[in-house]
């Protein structure tokens, strides 16, 4: 009988098992993106030349600030409505609760193009909303709703509210009901309980949700493309135009670098804040 080798796995086995995925991420994600960003600093005109010319362009600076504004408004609106909805969902029971969760998951699993397209039918010049308003005599001629910042924000909120609801339901469920009952039985008004007990306990969840929504809307492409068009150009649509229409590789790479740096800064800053507020949160 041959001696049976007892399997004593070492760290090397772990490295070997993770190697294919690690190499894939490094080789096909980190290196290409790193190359794009590094390329922007090798411009013959000077090391920061692409960035100087980006910020010297009034149009491109406007696009950057518009993108930040749309993302911020989307995040705030999603936070407010997502929080209220998540609270109700977290307190629901049995069948109702599963139904509410399914109804939030379903839009998430429906593609972004489909969801932006739905608002195209609603907000268009001959869209359902205009037809309804005209029929009711509220307006005399169709409103121009498409290709406005409002349309993009509605489309974005539509995209991200379910995400906010789902990420908050878990957090709110973990807040014991006893804590809220204790607060009210000790005489706190519902308003005081909300501001002083419920909200502070939910802050880590709110931060995670806010980061997901902000970075998601900051980099979204299909929704601003369909609902905002050229009038509401954002960084993502500008990047696509520069690369695929103008073949301006340096311009496109500069936008890519700006988007990457802002996104990663926000993720890191917020996770740092979340850790400081609640050391137990991951």
């Amino acid at each position: 009988m041959t001696a049976r080798h007892l399997w004593r796995p070492s760290g090397a086995t772990g490295w070997a098992l993770t190697a294919p995925a690690t190499l894939a991420v490094i080789g096909f994600l980190i290196v290409p993106i790193g190359a794009v960003i590094a390329g922007t600093f090798m411009d013959p005109r000077g090391i920061f030349a692409p960035y100087i010319s980006y910020f010297n362009s009034g149009f491109r600076t406007t696009v950057l600030f518009r993108t930040l504004q749309i993302s911020a408004l989307t995040t705030i609106i999603s936070l407010i409505f997502g929080f209220m909805t998540a609270y109700v969902v977290s307190r629901a029971q049995g069948k109702v609760k599963s139904l509410l969760i399914v109804a939030a998951v379903f839009p998430l699993l429906t593609g972004v193009v489909v969801r932006a397209f739905a608002w195209l039918i609603i907000l268009g010049r001959n869209g359902i909303l205009n037809q309804t308003l005209l029929a009711l005599g509220i307006v005399n001629e169709p409103l121009e709703m498409l290709y406005t910042q409002g349309a993009v924000i509605v489309g974005m909120v539509y995209l991200f509210v379910p995400l906010m609801v789902l990420s908050l339901v878990g957090v709110l469920e973990n807040i014991p009901k006893d804590v809220l009952q204790a607060s009210s039985s000790l005489g706190a008004s519902p308003v005081a309980t909300f501001w002083q007990v419920l909200l502070p306990l939910a802050v880590p969840g709110l931060i995670v949700g806010a980061v997901l929504v902000f970075t998601g809307s900051f980099t979204a492409y299909a929704t601003p493309q369909l609902l905002g068009g050229e009038r509401q150009t954002v960084l993502a649509t500008l990047l696509q135009q520069r690369a695929m229409v103008s073949f301006d590789w340096v311009g496109a790479s500069t936008i890519a670098a700006i988007m990457t740096v802002i996104t990663i800064t926000i993720v890191l800053a917020m996770s740092h804040i979340a850790r400081r507020i609640n050391p137990m949160a991951t």
């Binding site: 290409p32 993106i33 794009v36 993502a236 990047l239 790479s253 996104t263 990663i264």
Partner: peptide, 25 residues
């Protein structure tokens, strides 16, 4: 950090990733 590495593809902007694959790959 190895765990973080595997979530990088959803941390970096997808549109940047797509563009980088086109340009570099």
């Amino acid at each position: 950090w190895l765990g973080t590495l595997f979530v990088l593809p959803i941390l970096v902007p997808e549109i940047v990733f797509g563009f980088a694959l086109l340009k570099s790959f």
